Amino acid sequence: MKRWAFGAAAGMIAVGGLTAGYRMYGRDTASAPAIIRHCGAATADQRIWVAGGRYQIGAAPRYREETGPQMVETSGFWIDRHEVTNAQFARFVAATGYRTIAEQTPDPAAYPDLDPAALVAGSAVFGVSAGQGYWWSFVPGASWQAPYGPGSSIEGQDDYPVVHIAYADAAAYAGWAGGELPTEAEWEIAARAGQAGAEFEWGDEFRPGGQWRANSWQGPFPAIDTGDDGFAGLAPIGCYEANELGLVDMTGNVWEWTASPFSADPATGTIRGGSYLCAPNFCARFRPAARQAQEWDFSASHIGFRTISRDPGPGEP
């Protein structure tokens, strides 16, 4: 499956242009809960140390692709405190001239079953389309700089996570930043922060003490997101309480690329953490044990990433 042939794994159904009735899927911060105090407060590059050792990952499987509890060993690594932001990615592009996959016209040789005229630069956007309600569309011209297509921009959104990122884009940034992408195991170890076997990153209650701990979807998906957690759509980084390691947004907001294949299928990688579109009635893959298959060359308005570094940690030579 390619980014030009959307499938059931991502809930996508259409290939083609933007319909006339499309509008941007917005956000509403007027009723932001009290837990949101420091949105965007940590936009500088910052990584947090995860000590090497033996860890339990996984939990009782909810979906068939989940592995269940298992023990893994890892060397220590540094991981970004938050998802890579628009400001960080913009610095990378300014320094290197990099163009993301979404900004490039696909090679017709890679898509022999499609009309070459349909192969245009763009990406998948979740929004409102005429006659469709909220759902996915392929939007020509959508990219990290124009997340909802031509006419949209990221102006004023430096501290939002960068989106419309394919695996190669994330890997290119990671290399430039002196790092790489985490494996699935490393990602989950960092997300759990010692909460072995817990249902959620922070424990077994979705809203401990009645507090929202992540940016997800409230309401019947995909009809309406009430924004009860403070956001209907993307949130800036760092709006919710950090985990025990000090990492923010490991749950929800945007899916995050890992370096691990999803299965023996060479076409699919793995994203973790869920996004603002995850809802209990549709997708509970915002749990740290959950996995999602994603085509390596696929980008969308809810896929971002964070990086790790294998530099020596505290007290290491």
Rank of each mutant, 00 (worst) to 15 (best):
N86Q: 02
A42M: 05
Y98F: 13
R310I: 08
P69L: 04
Y240N: 04
T96E: 14
Y148W: 13
A177Q: 01
A259K: 01
V50G: 04
G16P: 15
A267F: 08
Y111D: 12
F77T: 11
A170R: 03
T268V: 09
M71E: 11
A185V: 06
Y55W: 00
S152N: 13
W78A: 01
P61T: 11
M1L: 11
G179F: 00
S216P: 08
L181I: 10
P140I: 02
Q218G: 13
D113Q: 10
D311L: 15
D113V: 11
R310A: 10
G26Q: 15
A223F: 13
G52M: 06
V125K: 10
W49I: 13
T268I: 08
T105Q: 14
A264M: 11
M24F: 13
T43P: 04
A102G: 15
E73M: 07
Y160W: 15
Y55P: 00
D169P: 07
A174F: 00
G156W: 06
Y173V: 08
T96A: 11
G151S: 13
V163D: 05
Y160G: 11
W217L: 10
A109N: 10
D311A: 15
G203E: 00
I308P: 01
A174G: 05
W257N: 07
A10Q: 11
E244Q: 07
G7K: 10
H164Q: 14
R306I: 01
D169R: 08
V72R: 06
P140R: 01
P312I: 01
R207K: 02
T43M: 02
A191R: 00
A279D: 09
W212Y: 08
D107E: 14
Q56M: 04
L247T: 02
Y55E: 00
A259T: 06
T74I: 03
G233Y: 11
G274P: 02
G175C: 03
F298Y: 14
R213G: 05
G149R: 05
E65S: 14
L234F: 04
E155G: 15
N243R: 06
E295P: 12
E244R: 08
G175A: 05
Y148Q: 10
A59I: 05
G203Q: 00
C39R: 02
G179L: 00
G273L: 12
L247C: 03
R47T: 01
A146I: 08
G21N: 09
F206K: 07
W187P: 05
P33E: 09
A174Y: 00
D225E: 03
P106F: 10
R37W: 04
L119N: 14
V120K: 05
F262M: 05
N281P: 04
T100S: 09
P222C: 09
P150K: 06
A110C: 08
G252Y: 00
E295G: 12
E241K: 09
A130S: 15
G194C: 03
L234Y: 03
G52Y: 09
R306W: 00
L247V: 02
P69W: 04
A14H: 14
N253A: 13
D229Q: 03
R207W: 01
T74G: 01
F92R: 05
C239D: 06
P266E: 08
Q56A: 04
L234R: 05
A102N: 15
G141F: 09
I237Y: 06
T307Q: 04
T105P: 12
L277S: 10
N86H: 01
R91A: 10
I189L: 02
E199Q: 06
P116L: 12
G238S: 07
W4A: 13
A90V: 06
H38P: 03
F138W: 08
A30T: 12
